[in-house]
Nucleic acid binder design. Structure first.
Lengths: 351, 351
DNA sequence: GCCAAGAGCGTGACCGGTCACACTTGGATC
DNA sequence: GATCCAAGTGTGACCGGTCACGCTCTTGGC
């Protein structure tokens, strides 16, 4: 549609203005839907916009308005199912609100590296969403400039494990109730008749025990069951495999809860290698309900967590901080849901 | 360190300038490492920068320089292992080059929706990386404004399936040689003695046959093996399960190649449900070497693809387009590698 | 002692939008 | 016919950097 055919730079509002025979301010009014513009003028301006293929320059808008309409997600990893789903949820909600989403990966939990990443994120967008399930994420969350007099605070939302005590209003956090989820899963296994349930933990985000661990422990305590030491796993199947090998050799172990489905996969494998049948000899339950959980052999009993809902909620919360007009909590996070499949069953008959 | 304690806005170069008793231009020279600044002056400016906690405003820099130092990754999904790994690779390389990474999810393959997403991405950064393994991605790649006279071209790199013919220089694409990979995997299965190999395909990105399909077909042809129709799967295990159920019922099927590891998982499950032993009765091979492949029971023979390397290469290519000074192809993508595990073996002895 | 060169630094305009304000109309009111 | 108001439009400054240029002051060669 361009008649001159020689335009190099994209059209600005001043180009549109001269094409339509008005001032740049009138063009600004048109693209911002200000009411005080004569309909006929608006028509001419819109025609010029169309003809020149004008698009509002996001950078200039950001400079003038002081807001970039972009948020950054800081995460330790993009490939883990839970992390990736949260990211997807954030992006979905952000897109609906016309926000751009940036991403930063915390490759190391090293203090200065993390601080540098946070700084980079800070001047890339208006706000930050930090996935703080692991040490790197927690460190990042703590490194975010809080509202000290000199430097203005950077709006931030943390996606965290269930906190031990409800955080104050100055701690905008979102979480799924994974303590309750662990409790439910453990109770499920106990109700099948197992004497106790062993636990293979995901790496704790802090030194304190994680929410999942404490939910598991509470269920054991309530049932008066023995409390074995939780085994420390990593995030991936390899960690589960290592832990599983140890557990497989202990004949008293009949039920294992795993911090996530990948760990459970490794545990299943280790049990298989050691000739222990699931669920006939040992029951296994996971966490997350990753897409492959239903298709494993045996299919995995697990607790489904609403990660994308969590991501949407994180964005909604941040959005509300960034714009007072944003709706309040429009994206509820659905509660964890126990999904019973083949990998859990009653313990073997005691001989 | 802020003495006034009342600063609202972050410090600008003019604030630094007056604090150091120089002009804003001198401050600009210091932060850009221009040589013509007296060392003593530089000291004073640096001290002021430190004291005020000055950080260069990325938005203003972008407006003045015309370049945002940001790239956007457009993808159909963030949770699939391959996609997520590519994203991680892009982010890694971008971070090393001090570029920000934005992400856009193509929720639908609908023409206008995709075009809108591309537009959004276009004015969010300097360039685009499109993961074009699926119809939405391919459509996005085609919707990117090419260098027509009116609108300037938007630099874009496509992460694509192995193209049938090497693309011209105006098509900056990266890929792993998945045709060759499929060929190798098929040959592996044939070499074990299978009469032929069935194929469960990932959704084709175009109407034409995918590279993986054609590599598989070539291997069959070379061996003079019968060429069964490929089965159309989806991306996830569910599609593999559906396809697997059909294949399980055909006693002549002894070897199955799957377009990715998730499909293979579904196939394994379907075979198990139908009482067909792997690998004793049927051999299965996957694609990607996702983290769980090694821990399945049986562990999965697959072809490892260097997705993060691919992501790094995509960024490197885009970087070279954006900055002539960027190094040439510093991130080689390693070749696909066959990983033989338990799920493949010789066919059952013919009775 | 004069002039050219270059080191060191400052001023003005600009990138493409926005905001605050002032200006010109036309119609209604008195 | 003068006054007021509101609709409709335009001008200037600004956001926080950059670039292009110009100015001043040494320094060195002749």
């Amino acid at each position: 549609m361009n008649m001159t055919g020689h335009t190099r730079r994209p059209a600005s509002i001043r180009d549109v203005a001269s094409a339509a025979g008005v001032s740049y301010q009138t063009v600004s009014r048109v693209i911002n839907d200000h009411p005080r513009v004569k309909p006929s003028t608006r028509e001419r301006v819109l025609a010029a916009i169309d003809e020149l293929g004008f698009r509002r320059n996001a950078t200039a808008l950001a400079l003038a308005s002081g807001r970039t309409r972009a948020v950054t997600v800081l995460t330790g990893n993009t490939t883990h199912y839970g992390y990736a789903s949260i990211l997807q949820g954030v992006e979905e909600a952000a897109r609906a609100a016309s926000y751009a989403v940036g991403i930063g990966v915390l490759e190391s939990a090293d203090e200065t590296t993390v601080a540098a990443e946070v700084q980079r994120a800070a001047d890339a967008g208006d706000g930050l969403i930090v996935i703080a399930y692991d040490p790197a994420g927690v460190r990042a969350l703590n490194a975010v400039p809080t509202g000290r007099p000199g430097a203005p605070a950077l709006p931030v939302v943390g996606v965290v494990e269930t906190p031990a005590t409800p955080p104050g209003g100055d701690r905008p956090w979102v979480w799924t109730d994974d303590r309750e989820a662990a409790y439910e899963a453990t109770r499920h296994l106990l109700s099948l008749g197992h004497e106790t349930v062993h636990y293979v933990a995901i790496p704790s985000s802090t030194r304190r025990t994680s929410a999942r661990t404490s939910g598991w422990r509470r269920a054991l305590r309530e049932a008066g069951a023995p409390e074995p030491r939780p085994l420390q796993g990593s995030w991936g199947p390899a960690g589960g495999h290592t832990a599983g090998r140890r557990l497989a050799k202990d004949p008293s172990v009949t039920a294992i809860l795993c911090g996530n489905d990948d760990l459970a996969l490794g545990v299943l494998r280790a049990l298989h290698e050691n000739g222990r049948a699931v669920p006939d000899e040992v029951s296994v339950a996971g966490f997350d309900d990753a897409p492959h959980a239903a298709y494993l052999t045996p299919s995995l009993t697990t607790v489904r967590l609403d990660f994308t809902g969590l991501g949407r909620a994180a964005f909604a919360l941040l959005h509300r901080v960034l714009e007072q007009s944003a709706p309040i909590a429009p994206h509820p996070v659905s509660a964890p849901q126990l999904v019973v499949r083949e990998s859990s069953g009653p313990p073997p008959a005691t001989t």
